[in-house]
Design a protein around this nucleic acid. Structure first.
Lengths: 236, 236
DNA sequence: ATGCGATGTTAAGATTTTATAAAGATGATT
DNA sequence: AATCATCTTTATAAAATCTTAACATCGCAT
């Protein structure tokens, strides 16, 4: 009896069935998803232990799925892809994938790679919770990482991509002071030459969208000469 | 500068050199081994962060090397092998390898796979650091280095960048007398020549913020003609 | 006690950093 | 090409921080 849960994300039915029957015969629990949105939804709902991910999905690009999931989870992701180019592999691995198999793959190898992840999780689980909650709440602010939405007082905030990333970054590090350099690198990538001017503008707009007219408590604190910090709002 | 250490185990000189120069150009530290015994010896002596292992070694079989190392270490092992058969892969992975690349391999992919391991290690280390190492307590004073905040009696201190740096410097050297020159160099950089006047002002404000109205015990001691010292407060 | 050098304290203003608005640039969509 | 949303740049006032300098204080040797 194996209690290990695998989320299989594959839109091609024959391959999906092949993986499913293989997992079943080896006593793995599994879930099936056929699109990127479905995958993200199931990942956040059921918190599987491992994910098999086909990159060629009908709705979202597979790499984007990886990035979205990595916003809140460190669950092992094994990519299964028809693309065998180096750039594809590197992009997926750097986006947060843990392994990359090219089609056609051997079922036995797939199982061996799965056992590697299993071993690794066993190693980790003694210490820490592996998967975070995919919903963040802080006072009137709520972020649903899986859905990619943020709410203030239950009302959805209309955020631009960078605003959302910035908000997530601050939320993930609630209570910590993040330096300008750290923030710009996380958001614009290491190539960018610390673009603090833009960061300030985004902070202004983000604050404007977050602040209640009444509730003047600013969730985002400025640390002059250092950076910014999101406060933990315990009052609610 | 990259402090990550890689042990490269490969008896074929050209490939070994290829990997070595690649690692060097990407600022990785590395060690070289050409046999299984050598690999095990170096792994135990230097505790590298990751190991690249060729399976075709002159003395011991590569899988045996993996098993021997797994008796005492969980360090990530990336196998690099000419054998592309499923059974070989499965045997190595089940013996304890974390990844398996077949020759000829792309250098870029190798680096991407290495980054995956690096990420995994970073994940473990930050967790451990957060729990153990990043909070300093001395009497009523507490410094959370990871969060970048300091507290007196649980209440957060509002410190300017230099004040905070100064406090951290003293805290990191609790019990030691630090000379004026040492402090100014650490805080303003080596260019600035003894900016002791400013230092005195900062000391005054820092002390004011640290001192309880009642509790006059001054944590920061002056050593006339020399510098300053933070005392260890055992009473609390 | 007196004078001296080193340190503590204070406050003004010089400097740096930040918030914000508004204009310009980009890029996708139609 | 025109529109729209987004992002970047620029300019400026306000705020925070830092340096400087003047003065007070302390310990100590004469």
């Amino acid at each position: 009896m194996n209690k290990f849960g695998v989320l299989v994300v594959e839109d091609d039915a024959p391959i999906r069935n092949l993986i499913a029957t293989t997992l079943k015969t080896h006593d793995y629990k599994y879930l099936l998803a056929t699109s990127g949105e479905d995958a993200i939804m199931q990942a956040s709902t059921y918190s599987p232990d491992v994910m098999f991910l086909d990159l060629g999905l009908p709705d979202i690009d597979g790499v984007e799925v990886i990035k979205r999931i990595r916003e809140w989870s460190v669950m092992p992701i094994i990519v299964i892809s028809a693309r065998s180019e180096d750039e594809d592999k590197i992009e997926a691995l750097d986006a947060g994938a843990d392994d990359y198999l090219t089609k056609p793959f051997s079922v036995e190898e797939l199982l061996a790679r799965l056992r590697v992840m299993q071993r690794r999780i066993a190693l980790l689980q003694t210490d820490n919770e592996l998967i975070e909650n995919s919903v963040y709440v802080n006072g009137k602010l709520k972020i649903d990482f899986a859905a990619g939405c943020a709410y203030k007082d239950g009302e959805e905030l209309k955020l631009t991509p960078i605003e959302y990333k910035l908000l997530c970054l601050l939320a993930h590090n609630t209570g910590k002071v993040l330096t300008h350099k750290y923030i710009t690198q996380k958001i614009w990538g290491s190539a960018w030459d610390s673009n603090v001017a833009s960061l300030r503008v985004f902070m202004a707009t983000l604050r404007k969208k977050l602040n209640d007219d009444k509730d003047t408590t600013n969730l985002i604190q400025t640390h002059v000469g250092i950076g910014y910090r999101m406060l933990k709002n315990d009052s609610m």
